[in-house]
Design a protein around this nucleic acid. Structure first.
Lengths: 240, 240
DNA sequence: TAGTGGTCTAGACCACCGC
DNA sequence: CGGTGGTCTAGACCACTAC
């Protein structure tokens, strides 16, 4: 198994580093070997190692600290909600919303979900219905889908032992690490079901965020759809 | 005028290159000197030049072409609308919407506009009201504000000689080059005035895009607010 | 073919961290 | 203090472009 020799060395090295992370040989939070050590063991110059690491730092997979070392970055999605919504407490704080899991069931995957998760149609999936609240006010209604075979342990967890953030649970209980995700935003008038959950009028404009989350190996692990009132929505972008 | 000696050389060099671009010594579309030449004239190693240029390429200010040279990038905002909307023709093409300027006037800047453009309150500004259409169907209603002193020539242009894109006109007629911008998106129920322009029902959810556009020297040059139907809105993001 | 950016090397010295 | 990443140099060779 030899990588394509036509690619630059720093590219091939980058790919090998990714493979080590994907294989959980180096785990999130841990330091990878020093640049000198990597240069020696992969038989390239230190400058080449630096360039490969530069790429992964830019991709958000590694984090460098002068004098300490280079570490596998733990993806933090906590701030993702704040990227799109101005949610805050009455005191103006921003904190992670409380989670209330309304329902958990194992079902056959609807075809759209199966396609997104790249599993067989009608394969079993875990379906989670969840409400996220700040100061007891519902802010987001979420549906979450997980492939059953990878997340079997999750289906058996006592439901009220699950905290506000799911990704640490995936990691601890199912050995599945979320590394990245793509999100698609649209605006819809909310249906009666979700309107009741969010305690707003049916037909109120809501922002729908569809997120497909991947492991380090770019295999899709979770699909979710979140809805929040459009009045709370705000997004900022840099254009060049 | 000596830059801070504590900054790395590649950082100082980057700043000097930006200054050359901001001063229009090197203009958009033109090549800057070769890496060898820059290394010689700034008395640093080629590797240091490369790192400075790397930064500006990442920032979108320069563009490299192997074998040809390094060029000052002309910011292209044409695709910015497509970043947020699924606008397309009946044939499914994506092209730049037609522009129809409804009104152009010189007024005193409202305080919010003056603050955004960093000009004196009540300083004169050019206010443009514009409609953007695809297949004669209105897609976006825009208000655009320009500081009068920089864009005086624009106020005198025959209004139907102005094409679908404004930024090339700013450059050709006013010597003002837009280099970057920040956009803020929110969702609002549309008011009766804009509803009539867009030929939709008052109260329909619309996405409001506020854009502040800057020159290479980061000085604000244009402020605009665009409204489009939320039903056409779609946005995709990568999360890490 | 001459000139451009792209890759890669080898090594020096600096700034910062933790012990 | 030793070890880490950060900066900078100098030079070789490659790949691509324009003429």
């Amino acid at each position: 198994m030899q990588a394509d020799n036509r690619l630059p060395r720093y590219q091939r090295l980058r790919d090998e580093l990714v493979a080590m992370i994907a294989a959980r040989h180096w785990r999130p939070g841990e330091a990878i070997p020093t640049e000198q050590a990597l240069a020696k063991s992969y038989d390239v110059a230190v400058g080449t190692v630096r360039k490969a690491v530069d790429l992964l730092v830019a991709e958000g997979m590694l984090e460098r600290f002068q004098g300490r070392g280079t570490f596998v970055r733990r993806a933090s999605f906590d701030s993702s909600l704040f990227r799109f919504f101005r949610f805050q407490t009455k005191q103006g704080e921003r904190r992670i919303p409380e989670s209330r899991i309304l329902r958990r069931e194992v079902v056959e995957a609807p075809s759209a979900v199966a396609a997104a998760l790249q599993i067989a149609p009608n394969a079993r999936v875990i379906r989670l219905s969840r409400l996220r609240l700040i100061d007891d006010v519902p802010m987001l209604a979420e549906e979450i889908w997980l492939p059953f075979d990878r997340f079997e342990a999750f289906a058996r967890l006592p439901i009220d032992g699950i905290g506000d953030l799911l990704y640490p649970v995936y990691e601890a209980e199912c050995n599945q690490v979320i590394a990245s995700a793509t999100e698609t935003l649209t605006v819809e008038a909310i249906g009666p079901l979700h309107a009741r959950l969010l305690r707003i009028e049916p037909g109120t404009p809501t922002v729908v965020i569809e997120r497909l989350a991947y492991g380090y190996d770019r295999h899709p692990l979770e699909w979710r759809r979140s809805r929040g009132p459009a009045s709370e929505f705000i997004y900022q972008a840099e254009i060049r």
